[in-house]
């Protein structure tokens, strides 16, 4: 996964924002996956219009968090979601 990767939901997967972060629903099961990411990633990110780099830049401009910390955290969350079969990435470079 690089800064030029975009992500989309896998078929049968839905996501919505919750107080704790993101709630994923997978038609193929297991049904629910709770992601305590707070406001790190917006559900709209998974429509594949913004890259990981865009996301990191946006978060960096919105918060006083260290850029490396943001990047590590975003990569960690996306990596887990991909491993769980909820999203898939595609390089646009």
């Amino acid at each position: 996964m690089g800064p030029h990767t975009i992500y989309n939901l896998n078929a049968g997967v839905q996501v919505r924002r919750e107080v704790f972060g993101l709630l994923f629903y997978n038609y193929k099961g297991p049904r629910l996956y709770f992601v305590p990411s707070r406001d790190l990633i917006d559900p709209d990110f998974f429509d594949g219009r913004r890259t990981v780099g865009d996301l990191v830049d946006t978060l960096g401009s919105r918060h006083a968090w260290p850029e490396q910390w943001i990047s590590d955290r975003v990569h960690q969350v996306l990596g887990v979601l991909e491993e769980k079969g909820l999203i898939h990435g595609q390089s646009v470079c």
């Binding site: 919505r16 924002r17 919750e18 704790f20 629903y25 709770f34 305590p36």
Partner: peptide, 15 residues
């Protein structure tokens, strides 16, 4: 099941 997250209150039902 993430009980602690459910107890925080969901924005809508799952089903």
């Amino acid at each position: 099941m993430g009980n602690q997250y459910v107890e925080m209150g969901l924005s809508a039902p799952v089903n």
